[in-house]
């Protein structure tokens, strides 16, 4: 059993909606609404969801740049949603982030050396020479030429910039990196390149990733465990095999059916399957979401599989799951 590195307990991030004459808070946008999961040391944990489902907000809350409304994030036995605890632990030395938009995440006015050295300067005491060697090593790891150190971000291509972002994130030898859609702005060949560098670094330094993405294919390639998020809550959580082979929640099924498949012969069948899932989603939405349109709490249906279901459906699902297992 691998050691858990971080636990997210009932995490909530609400944004107030202000309206009326006095601009009072009349309601909240529940961007993240009670999310529970935990990440093991050195594993890649996938967090999947559509745009606006709160997955990036969850990631930002874990890194500590988003104000948390409720819940806890436990790291080394302390609740790091409090800024004082983060400071005590030097939290951001251990937990770093890779951003989606590599252009805006690198300061256009700073050289690559200064960009990558920033976390090193803040968390470690190195001489200028040591620091430069470290930056050079990091650039080597992500396969960048050594003269990159003197250049500015706009002189690189998107894939190179994203690799610089990866180099910055691993600069302080972190234990966990939150990768917020690190490849969604890149084309497919460059995606593979960046992902391979990330995997390579993971094996080398035993880093855990929280891999946030809407691309199920990429997540399948990267992660062992994953969680699927919808409307600020988790709808399904489990190991990769469980979710890709036995999806239970209607939303998961819909997502999985939407993965494009290069299979010209069976194109019509795939299309039919997709349409059928979509129809089921339209018709049975009320069954899978409660009367306010919220997702139900998670129920365990198999040893490594949790699904958001109303209680009566949970037992059914559990039985189904067992049958499916036996027939496999």
């Amino acid at each position: 059993m691998a050691k858990e590195i971080i636990q997210i307990k009932d995490l909530k991030v609400y944004y107030p909606i202000r309206s009326g004459f006095w601009n009072r808070i009349t309601d909240y946008v529940r961007a993240v609404d009670g999310v529970n999961f935990s990440i093991n040391e050195g594993e890649t944990y996938g967090l999947i969801g559509e745009s606006g489902s709160g997955k990036s907000t969850t990631g930002k809350a874990i890194v500590g740049v988003e104000k948390v409304t409720g819940g806890q994030i436990m790291y080394k036995g302390l609740d790091v949603t409090k800024a004082s605890n983060r400071k005590k632990l030097d939290y951001n030395k251990d937990v770093q982030m890779i951003f989606q938009d590599s252009m805006s995440s690198l300061n256009p006015r700073k050289r690559i050396e200064d960009i990558i050295a920033e976390p090193i300067r803040n968390f470690e005491n190195l001489t200028t020479d040591q620091e430069r060697d470290r930056v050079q090593d990091l650039l080597d790891i992500v396969g960048m030429p050594s003269d990159a150190i003197y250049k500015y971000p706009h002189e690189f291509s998107g894939g190179q910039r994203q690799r610089i972002g990866v180099a910055r994130a691993v600069a302080t030898n972190p234990k966990l990196i939150v990768a917020d859609e690190p490849t969604s702005a890149l084309d497919l060949s460059v995606q593979a390149q960046v992902l391979n560098f990330m995997k390579h670094i993971q094996q080398q330094y035993n880093i855990a990733y929280l891999f946030i993405s809407h691309d199920l294919g990429v997540v399948k390639h990267m992660s062992e465990n994953l969680a699927i998020m919808h409307r600020g809550r988790l709808v399904e959580l489990g190991s990769r095999e469980e979710i890709y082979k036995h999806p239970i929640h209607i939303y998961t099924k819909r997502l999985l059916s939407a993965i494009p498949q290069v299979d010209v012969e069976h194109r019509e069948e795939h299309k039919k399957h997709r349409e059928q899932v979509e129809k089921e989603f339209e018709e049975n939405q009320g069954k899978w979401y409660d009367k306010d349109g919220r997702v139900y709490p998670l129920q365990q249906v198999a040893p490594k599989h949790w699904v958001a279901l109303p209680e009566d459906m949970a037992q059914e699902a559990e039985l189904e799951e067992r049958e499916e297992k036996e027939s496999d």
Partner: peptide
């Protein structure tokens, strides 16, 4: 709200 500000925050500045 640019990402580089967030990146600096996570870098401990």
């Amino acid at each position: 709200d640019r990402d580089y500000v967030l990146a600096s925050k996570t870098s401990g500045s």
